[in-house]
Design a protein around this nucleic acid. Structure first.
Lengths: 217, 217
DNA sequence: GACCCATTCGAACGTTCGTTCGAATTCAGT
DNA sequence: ACTGAATTCGAACGAACGTTCGAATGGGTC
């Protein structure tokens, strides 16, 4: 996780001089971010103290502040990196795929795969949605909006192709609800893996949204 | 909101001697719970301080502790009352109704109606799901389990009646995801009311779950 | 060995946290 | 008006909070 590279002046400087993309600084920051993600996931952002993070990452309290300016910025780095990654992966997977139904299945699979292999980070992203303030909040909100727009686009393609009629907004937000709620219940010892979950949720959602046309009344 | 009556010794004593179900104590406690619900909704449980609650309810910091023993118990009272109420209402509405599809529509309508007319309380219930510890946590978890079981029952009725095949667990949790996620996006100036939302989500969910039978593969 | 910059740390800063306590005030019944 | 119980409050408690600072290390280059 080299999330902070592009937004951290210290490592950006270094990157100009060195050819390796991941400096020592970035690596260490990445480790701290990973530990912090776990702690935020377990105790919540407000509930986790800097001393908790210090203990989890094995670095002194003061030492942490060498890597980031504040607790809030730490959460920001986690959320931005997580969200950026999931959007990037989605874009890459959608490339070259043109069937609208398939494209939605890919969105669902991509979301659930990333969710389950990065459960802690995704919980922090979902659950600490409005923990950031002002500038931090708006930058994350921008990525979220982009993700939302992509999903709206995919659904509109499907609507157009099949002449369906439903509220895209409700459909998109229902879909995200289905998927994001996972963090409250998924148990890897009981529940299916991402492939199977994606298949089942895709069936429910796509059959629900296709079929017929206008909802009754 | 007379949630605490049955669990508070002070008011239980009084209730033996008086004929009114809502004592002065209960009324005042209810007001405090309502204000606290707003504050927890806006700032989160951990993020809200007792001084915030004092300010919001117009009572001194020390005065609050006359009505409840701790901040954690306050959250517990809010969650328990909210959850109990929504389950009670559902049971009452289901009485006498036997058509499986209709019964599921009622569950969805009941959930969304209560959600939208008690947004703050429902956000606190959904979002501060694991903020409580030990005894408090398990008592709320018991109500949640009952609610979950009811929903599983309704879906199994539908499955049996129509010979459907799908994972009840995934279906139930997807449905709750769709519905509970509302607190992250619903805007009363833009979005439809509970009736209309319930209709749309019911269509998506029921069509998604019925139809055909087994999911492919 | 000396220098320099990057990294780490112990100790403390001022603030805010949840909670308590004893005194003051308000209320209901006479 | 008087009395005892119910209610409210100001002031304080020790603990924990996020953050800072200057000094102590570490590793690589002359």
């Amino acid at each position: 996780m080299a999330a902070a590279s592009t937004t951290n002046a210290r490592s950006a400087q270094r990157r100009g001089a060195l050819r390796l993309p991941a400096t020592r600084f970035d690596k260490r920051l990445g480790e701290i971010l990973n530990h912090a993600t776990d702690v935020f996931c377990r105790k919540g952002y407000e509930g986790a103290s800097m001393r908790d993070l210090s203990r989890a990452s094995g670095m002194s309290l003061a030492g942490l502040y060498y890597y980031f300016q504040s607790k809030e910025r730490l959460l920001f780095l986690i959320q931005k990196h997580t969200f950026t990654t999931i959007v990037e992966r989605l874009k890459a997977r959608l490339e070259g795929m043109s069937n609208p139904e398939q494209r939605i299945r890919i969105l669902i699979l991509n979301h659930l795969e990333y969710f389950l292999s990065n459960q802690a980070a995704m919980k922090v992203l979902s659950h600490e949605d409005d923990a950031l303030k002002n500038g931090f909040a708006s930058e994350v909100a921008a990525i979220k909006r982009e993700y939302y727009r992509i999903c709206v686009g995919l659904l509109d393609e499907l609507k157009h192709e099949r002449g369906l009629q439903f509220s895209t907004r409700i459909a998109v937000l229902s879909l995200f609800g289905m998927m994001n709620w996972i963090y409250t219940w998924h148990n890897s010892r009981v529940d299916a893996d991402a492939d199977e979950l994606a298949r089942q949720m895709s069936e429910i959602f796509l059959r629900g949204v296709m079929n017929g046309g206008r909802a009754r009344r």
